[in-house]
């Protein structure tokens, strides 16, 4: 499913804008469940994705904010969701369902949905997961007990391919307080800049890959990973 060009920029932008009220959108109708669905998201495209997630019943079991109900899978911490890139794993699973299971009710199949609907659902799952994981990690109590050497090893494996050298990262450690540094590591500022559809920027794969990479990291960091990375960054001061 070739949605990468679209999915990742939208995700990144809407995370940053989520706190803003969607003033550009029409006011909800009286027959709209505002209390359950929540106020409109700033990005109408993400709002549409959220409503698609609701309309096809995903929220019923997996929760509006990925807090699962009953025996449903916890999408906030699911390894499969963490590995998914542009619906390459979630899409086929949605289409096939999980008929073989030890649970009371198997995960239904959604083979009648269009590709666009599958992408919408997936986009919202990643968006909600990134919001949730950001909150969990930012508020984690163990962030002060990291190991710098382990953090360096993590950075060598996951960060250095883009962050050549350590200069920019050491500057960041000097410049920011611990909370700011944590926030910027989890969600770098550049993710908030809207992606451009101008032809001369349309094929900016570097930024697109950076967005994808950071979104993926945010969804998969453990508390220890973040604590260790912070310890390493602060050792660069």
């Amino acid at each position: 499913m070739n949605t990468r060009r679209f999915l990742i920029p939208v995700l990144a932008v809407t995370i940053a804008l989520a706190v803003l009220h969607g003033q550009s959108q029409s006011p909800p109708r009286q027959d709209y469940d505002l209390a359950y669905i929540g106020p409109p998201l700033a990005d109408p495209v993400m709002q549409h994705s959220k409503e698609t997630y609701v309309l096809f019943g995903c929220a019923y079991c997996h929760g509006m904010n990925l807090v699962a109900r009953g025996e449903a899978t916890d999408l906030m911490h699911s390894a499969l969701v963490g590995r998914d890139e542009n619906a390459n794993l979630i899409g086929p699973l949605l289409r096939a369902g999980i008929p073989q299971t030890a649970k009371l009710s198997p995960m239904p199949q959604f083979s009648d949905l269009s590709n666009a609907q599958i992408v919408d659902i997936t986009r919202y799952i990643h968006y909600a997961r990134q919001l949730g994981r950001y909150k969990e990690l930012f508020e984690a109590k163990a962030l002060g007990s990291g190991n710098a050497a382990t953090g360096k090893a993590y950075a060598d494996q996951h960060c250095r391919s883009c962050h050549q050298g350590v200069t920019d990262l050491s500057q960041a450690a000097k410049k920011y307080s611990r909370p700011s540094l944590t926030a910027k590591m989890l969600h770098p500022d550049f993710l908030d800049r809207p992606a451009s559809w101008k032809l001369d920027q349309l094929h900016d794969t570097t930024t697109a890959e950076a967005r994808q990479r950071h979104a993926h990291l945010l969804e998969n960091y453990t508390e220890s990973d973040v604590a260790n990375l912070l310890a390493w960054l602060e050792s660069l001061k």
Partner: peptide, 11 residues
């Protein structure tokens, strides 16, 4: 029922 809806539950 467990189908999704954008309407409040009572309606």
């Amino acid at each position: 029922f467990e189908h999704g809806t954008l309407r409040p539950a009572v309606p």
